[in-house]
Design a protein around this nucleic acid. Structure first.
Length: 736
RNA sequence: GGGAGCAUAGCUCAGUUGGUUUAGAGCAUCUGCCUUACAAGCAGAGGGUCCGCGGUUCGAACCCGUGUGCUCCCACCA
């Protein structure tokens, strides 16, 4: 109801400001259904048509005929696809720079068959190189001709009836169907020697979606909003950065182009459903615009009978007020809500309505509030199917969302859509990503299950082994840093509206870092209690990752948040805390630990050491201290029953080079020396190739002179690292 | 016809003013595991002429030119 009032108020306001007017417009007409069509209801098809070249005789001019009597027998040739419209011609037109037709200035030509004199006019619109370089102007039946007609004040002669037959205004062939008339006219032109030639011509014709007949351009009277003054502040809002469109590169240009070349907005529609235009006509056809019929009556002499305009308003004429009227800002200006909430933060919408809606909301904001409606516009991609086709009703390739939610769960559907929608690009919908979301849900449940098992087995007192405490300490320290690092990353990505990348970061933080590394590192032996401090940290981290994930998967995160422990607050309203900078040292140490574990597991795999089999590890390092606090984790993750710092054991062993260090695995297996050599040789080849590329750089004087100091320093470090690794591998190879 | 964007692993995409390795992730693939949270899983691996060509630079996936292919928007020329 308040929207209704707002729309009427705005219409009257704009009319009184002179920004709304009535005018003629070319629309598409369906002669079979006898109705106007919207542009969306017209389908263009490529078809072969014919171009007819017709003679137009030059009328004997009073002045010219005396000076040059030969001109009376002259004619111009004009090409047309639609000879049946010649009776509607009201001028012919050439390019002002076309010398061939320069002498026609001020002259008239005779329209064939009806012998009507029409003027020759000149306009840049005409392409000198197309057809004969001169064209007939038929304002009633072609949009471009209509515009030229407006410019040169030409009369409009409508030669067609509503059903597509020739009208009385045409003078000849009255009542004949448009296509029958075309044939007959061509024959008559031939007979009278006025047809120079016919040419095959590839063209595009608009067909009515409803009846499949060729749509006919037709003139009708419509209501318009003058856009130029409204567009300027809306353009400025975006170019100045007051409103930011995301992704910026892709759509700012489109937005600017449209606003710079904006056309007046046709706001009337010939539909039953819609809001009727608040305009009334008296018996003489005078128009009165007012909010109600009573108000309109006051504008008349008081004796008139008024009839309201039957047309309704374009649906966007109410939609463009939404950011304002949603807070009653039009109907109750200055109310508490509009003062508090306007302007809003972010509009999320589809790129297909950038002009229909987004641009016009900004216009309305600038016009009626003198302030932008929102600070950011985020365009989601178009959803397409796996083959890249648009989702559409006619193709039937749109998924049933409720069915998907039933099958995968609401959070999984959200996950699947968001993980596969890179900012600004189209989204290829694939149920595989929904399945990934479902698996992710499952992972979260299982993490909860694990932690709850610990909590049940938690004894009241502190009986934790020192070793367990140690591994817990390092794991907690490391994950805390990793969490902070990821939070900072997510904040940056979110502020740039890179949602899928933010979600990927969170996914990896939870699955890889929290579940696969952290929980495994602190996990006690079966049946053993977990250290209380470590346990509390694990729960607290779980809270944190749930909160980070919550905007993407609100249901499961809220649920787990409450199952994790008893509490009084809800995740949905819990405020994000400021992120602390991560401890770089523990991040590096954690990365190094992962690298070691992976290298050992890889070697186990390659040498077919079964997962259950224990191994012994000999680490040859110059820096034993760096292994402080990670040995228990390493031994558990590599399933090593013993780790010592020593050089190669006497028994046959597997040699691994990780970083600059050598590690030997002693296991109860036959060691495949050849396979080992191959692996080491492979690494050696890679490193040597790598070293060559660095040496090339460093031995290039111009590089050393021109590159920044830190770049050179980095290259030197890469070189010495690579050399150290090479030495280690060569030693390893030699000892085999 | 005018304009914009894109082209990187089998697929979908990152790659942040040119230098952190001979380019990364997820999914898919391959190998080994039913290991007391999770087989909807765990561990590991393989996989690339960064679309072609030319240029700028000590140095190019990144900058410039050009060709090819794709997508979208606008217009729909007698």
């Amino acid at each position: 109801d308040h929207y209704y009032k707002a729309v009427i108020k705005v219409f009257v306001d704009l009319y009184n400001k002179g920004l709304i007017y009535r005018g003629a417009r070319m629309i598409n007409w369906d002669p079979a259904a006898k109705t106007a069509l919207s542009d969306e209801e017209v389908e263009y098809k490529d078809v072969m048509g014919k171009l007819y070249y017709i003679k137009y005789e030059i009328a004997p001019s009073k002045n010219a005929s005396k000076a040059d009597p030969s001109q009376t027998s002259n004619y111009v040739v004009i090409a047309t696809q639609r000879p049946e419209t010649i009776m509607g011609d009201t001028a012919i037109c050439a390019n002002p720079n076309d010398e061939r037709y320069a002498q026609l200035k001020g002259q008239k030509v005779i329209v064939p068959l009806i012998n009507k004199e029409v003027p020759v006019i000149f306009d840049d619109y005409v392409d000198k190189d197309f057809g004969t370089g001169i064209l007939k102007i038929t304002p009633a039946h072609d949009i471009n001709d209509f515009n030229i007609g407006l410019k040169y004040n030409l009369p409009v002669v409508d030669t067609l009836n509503e059903d597509g037959t020739i009208s009385e205004a045409a003078q000849i062939y009255i009542g004949e169907d448009r296509f029958t008339a075309r044939k007959k006219i061509v024959e008559e032109l031939k007979a009278k020697n006025l047809l120079v030639k016919e040419e095959e011509y590839a063209t595009r014709l608009g067909y009515s979606q409803r009846t499949s007949v060729v749509a006919e351009p037709k003139i009708s009277t419509q209501w318009f909003v003058k856009m130029k003054n409204l567009a300027a502040p809306a353009l400025e809002a975006v170019t100045s950065g007051n409103v930011t469109i995301h992704p910026t590169d892709k759509f700012s240009a489109t937005y600017k182009y449209w606003l710079e070349n904006v056309k007046d907005w046709c706001i009337s529609r010939q539909l039953w459903w819609g809001q009727q235009i608040p305009a009334w006509y008296d018996e003489e056809g005078n128009v009165f615009v007012a909010e109600t019929e009573e108000e309109a009556l006051k504008l008349t002499d008081g004796n008139s009978r008024l009839i309201q305009d039957e047309d309704v308003l374009d649906t966007w004429f109410s939609s463009w007020l939404w950011p304002i009227e949603v807070f009653n800002g039009i109907t109750q200006p200055g109310n508490k809500d509009i003062e508090y909430y306007y302007p809003t933060a972010t509009l999320v919408t589809g790129q297909d309505i950038i002009f229909f809606w987004v641009a016009r909301m900004i216009m309305a904001g600038m016009e009626f509030m003198k302030e932008k409606p929102f600070a950011d516009v985020y365009f989601t991609g178009m959803v397409r199917d796996k083959q890249g086709r648009k989702m559409s009703k006619s193709l039937g390739n749109s998924p049933d969302l409720l069915h998907l939610i039933h099958e995968y769960g609401a959070d999984a559907v959200r996950f699947g859509i968001m993980i596969s929608s890179p900012a600004g690009n189209d989204l290829l919908f694939d149920e595989g990503s929904l399945e990934q979301g479902k698996h992710f849900n499952n992972k979260l449940w299982n993490a909860l299950k694990l932690i709850r098992m610990w909590s049940l087995r938690q004894p009241g007192d502190e009986i934790a082994e020192p070793q367990e405490k140690e591994q817990g300490n390092f794991a907690v320290e490391w994950f805390n840093s990793r969490l902070n690092e990821a939070r900072i990353e997510v904040n940056i990505l979110m502020s740039q509206f890179r949602l899928s990348e933010a979600l990927k970061t969170i996914y990896s933080l939870i699955w890889d870092d929290y579940c696969s590394w952290f929980l495994e590192w602190i996990k006690p032996e079966f049946g053993e209690p977990v250290n209380k401090q470590t346990f509390n940290a694990a729960v607290s981290f779980f809270d944190d990752i749930l909160q980070v994930l919550h905007p993407f998967m609100p249901f499961i995160t809220e649920e787990i948040y409450h199952l994790l422990k008893d509490r009084n607050d809800d995740l949905v309203i819990k405020q994000f805390i400021n992120t602390a900078p991560p401890n770089v040292e523990s991040l590096l140490k954690g990365a190094r630990l992962k690298e070691l574990i992976t290298a050992i597991r890889d070697a186990r795999n390659k040498h077919r050491i079964r997962p259950k089999d224990h191994i012994k590890l000999y680490i040859e390092t110059g820096d034993e201290k760096s292994y402080n606090s990670i040995i228990p984790i390493l031994s558990k993750q590599a399933n090593a029953e013993m780790i010592t710092f020593a050089s190669q054991p006497k028994t046959s062993s597997i040699t691994i080079v990780s970083g600059k260090e050598k590690i030997y695995i002693e296991a109860n297996i036959e060691v495949d020396i050849i396979a080992q050599k191959e692996k080491l040789q492979q690494d050696l080849d890679y490193l040597k190739g790598f070293l060559i590329t660095i040496d090339k750089k460093l031995s290039n004087d111009r590089f050393v002179q021109n590159a920044k100091a830190e770049v050179i320093e980095l290259e030197r470090k890469k070189k010495s690292d690579a050399e150290a690794k090479i030495t280690a591998i060569e030693q390893g190879l030699a000892s085999l």
